[in-house]
């Protein structure tokens, strides 16, 4: 059972982790909608320091409105950005008002 399913609203956390982190700054704190569950993968934060024995983590594709990501005028409201986010970087949108 995964924590999220397609359609769920989520917020990307800002975990302040050092090292090889695959969640870019521009997407942290942003809220979006899960579009797809991708399966489990070894955490790149572990792999980067030679920890290859797991645990594997759930990975999701999450869509964000481009108008929410950037302050520019004139971004068409229907444009989106889809990015892959590991489970531990996500919180349910409704629970995460105080989240990092």
């Amino acid at each position: 059972m995964t924590r999220f399913a397609a359609g769920d609203r989520v917020r990307v956390l800002a975990l302040h982790k050092d090292g090889h982190v695959r969640i870019p700054y521009y997407i942290r704190h942003r809220t979006g909608q899960v579009t797809q569950y991708c399966g489990t993968y070894l955490n790149p934060e572990d792999l980067a320091v030679g920890h290859t024995s797991g645990p594997a983590v759930d990975l999701y594709r999450v869509a964000f409105a481009q108008t929410q990501l950037w302050p520019d005028d004139g971004i068409p409201s229907q444009d989106t950005l889809v990015i892959e986010i590991y489970d531990h970087w996500l919180a349910p949108e409704k629970d995460s008002d105080d989240a990092p």
Partner: peptide, 27 residues
């Protein structure tokens, strides 16, 4: 992204939906 596409010669109409996919992880 729309400005980048324009530089490649692709002027997307404003009613087209543009979806940018950041392949930041395993896909």
């Amino acid at each position: 992204p729309r400005a980048v596409l324009k530089e490649f010669g692709l002027d997307l109409s404003l009613d087209m939906k543009l979806v940018v996919h950041d392949s930041n992880a395993d896909m």
